[in-house]
Structures are given as structure tokens and as C-alpha cells.
Simulated assay, not measured.
Amino acid sequence: MNIELLNVRIFITKNEVTVDAIGNHKTSWVPYYSCYATVSAEAGKEDTDAGMIVDNTKVDFTTRWCKKAAALDSTHYRVEFNDTLYDITAIDHMNYKKKCIKLSCQKVRR
């Protein structure tokens, strides 16, 4: 893996259930991991849904393998890049060689 291609910083957050002072359970996004990655396969697409224009941007992030990155899944984690949130749709472990991990992401709708 060519290290000089890892030129953008991404932040990975984890969805956890927290309990407040009076016992209410809430889901919140807490910081999990921060690393450098390569951005590739940017595909911007706008669709019309119920009269609204919806941005369906898809981006792939490739990062170095580590134990924290290997524990990622597509249901409990998301990526923050350039103050934009992306849901992880697929994780490719690149033939399980323990060199890099590719995260296929889609922009979060708000």
C-alpha cells in the first residue's frame, strides 16, 4: 500500500445506547476511531423523491488495516469526512490480507 495516497482524515463514530441521569435510554453517536484514508469512486447523483431533490452521493474510503478498523460493521458505525456524514453500506476486507480495508459509503439524508 502506498502511504502517500492516504491524504484525508476521516472520523468514524459508533452508535451506542446511553443512559441519562434519570434512566432514559437514548441512542447517540460517540467518537470511535480517527485515521487517514484515500477517497475514491466519488459518484454524485441527485434523485427526486416525493417532490424533493435528494443527494445520493456515494464515496469509497480505503484505510490501513488495524484491529479497530477490522471490527467495523455497516449497522453500528458511520464516517464523517469534511463535516459531512456518510453511512457505511459495505465493507471490503480486500481478500483478508490485513493490509487495507475499503468502506463503501453513502451520504446521510437529513
Rank of each mutant, 00 (worst) to 15 (best):
H93M: 14
D20A: 03
Y33D: 08
A37Q: 06
K102W: 03
R64D: 09
K98V: 02
H76T: 03
V17A: 11
A90E: 12
T84S: 07
I3T: 15
T13S: 14
D20W: 01
C105D: 02
M94C: 13
I10R: 10
C100Q: 15
F81T: 07
K58F: 01
C100V: 11
V30R: 10
W65I: 02
T84I: 09
S74M: 03
N56Q: 06
T62F: 07
K99S: 04
T48Q: 07
D49K: 13
I12T: 03
D92A: 03
V79G: 04
H25R: 15
K107P: 10
W29V: 05
I3Q: 14
V19E: 13
W65R: 00
K14E: 15
D92V: 02
R110V: 10
T63M: 09
N2E: 07
M52T: 09
F81G: 07
K14Y: 10
F61H: 03
Y33T: 07
V54H: 00
K99P: 00
F61R: 02
L5G: 14
I91W: 00
K102G: 06
T38F: 13
W29T: 04
H93S: 12
M1R: 00
F61S: 02
L103N: 01
V59K: 07
T57E: 10
T84R: 06
K67T: 08
A21M: 08
D49I: 14
R9K: 15
E46Q: 10
N7M: 04
R109N: 14
A21Q: 12
C66W: 02
Y77I: 01
E42H: 08
A69K: 01
R64V: 12
V108N: 05
S28D: 06
L6D: 05
K14N: 12
I12W: 02
N15V: 02
D20M: 02
E16C: 05
D87L: 03
T75P: 01
K14H: 13
D87A: 05
V8D: 08
